[in-house]
Write a protein that binds this DNA or RNA. Structure first.
Lengths: 133, 133
DNA sequence: CGGTATCCAAACTGATACTG
DNA sequence: CAGTATCAGTTTGGATACCG
């Protein structure tokens, strides 16, 4: 059962350019995907509610992101057949698992944001005195 | 001490477009930053070694990524003043912390990659029969 | 060896307008 | 309400050539 195909999907191969994880990673950690995961934590939201929740996202980008996430199995899209349209999104079990990992990262980041910003400023102040970008 | 400035950096505000975390997130989860974190886990590497380790990265992108990560305080760059040049990179304590969070996500992803890929194929097979995009 | 400079193609993004 | 279509601006990314 350990044929050549298994070798292409072996664990810990993210550093390999041919690893398919790269694709998923790109979508999972895209600018908006991560925020969608967090926004949908524990609750079902409609398209417009989601858009209001996630500051700065355009209709186009949100729609595209949601389609990709549905395609990858992170969220479920339910379109009720009424007028006006009523569409709901919520996380799949897989999406929930991803959300917990992403949330850990996000939480850590928010707790360390001040220090990071400070370091960035100190760094550019000391080494960027002679070059402006 | 709870003035208006604190309100702009309050926790859990990633969904707000004005939250500075957005900037950091963009860099931390960029295409290559995450791989650099993983590659430098527990070891110091030189530029070219890092480049060999991370499949598919160009010199330009690696250099840019490393500069950003140094600026944000995730890595340290040590340039030994010899010919030929010898430059080493390693994680700061902050970088290590980030790495553990990122590694959790990466590990989970690699363990679930098969299921995700399968879902994606099944999804496009069932709903993409009439449109090829 | 460890980069930077330049050029160019492709991808991403948002504003706007439109549709069922 | 929940999108899609189109267009234009910005960013990203790689190839190549060059430099200290």
């Amino acid at each position: 059962m350990t044929n050549s195909l298994d070798l292409k999907i072996k664990k810990g191969d993210l550093l390999n350019a041919d690893c398919p994880s790269r694709d998923i990673l790109k979508r999972l950690l895209g600018r908006w995907s991560l925020l969608v995961l967090i926004a949908l934590k524990q609750e079902t939201l409609r398209f417009s509610a989601l858009r209001r929740r996630i500051g700065g996202v355009s209709e186009r980008m949100l729609a595209q992101t949601l389609r990709h996430m549905e395609e990858d199995g992170f969220i479920v899209r339910i379109a009720h057949d009424v007028v006006p349209p009523h569409v709901e999104y919520y996380l799949t079990p897989l999406g929930c698992e991803a959300e917990t990992r992403v949330a850990l990262l996000a939480e850590w980041l928010e707790n360390n944001i001040t220090g990071i910003m400070a370091h960035r400023q100190a760094f550019s102040a000391e080494s960027g005195r002679h070059e402006e970008h």
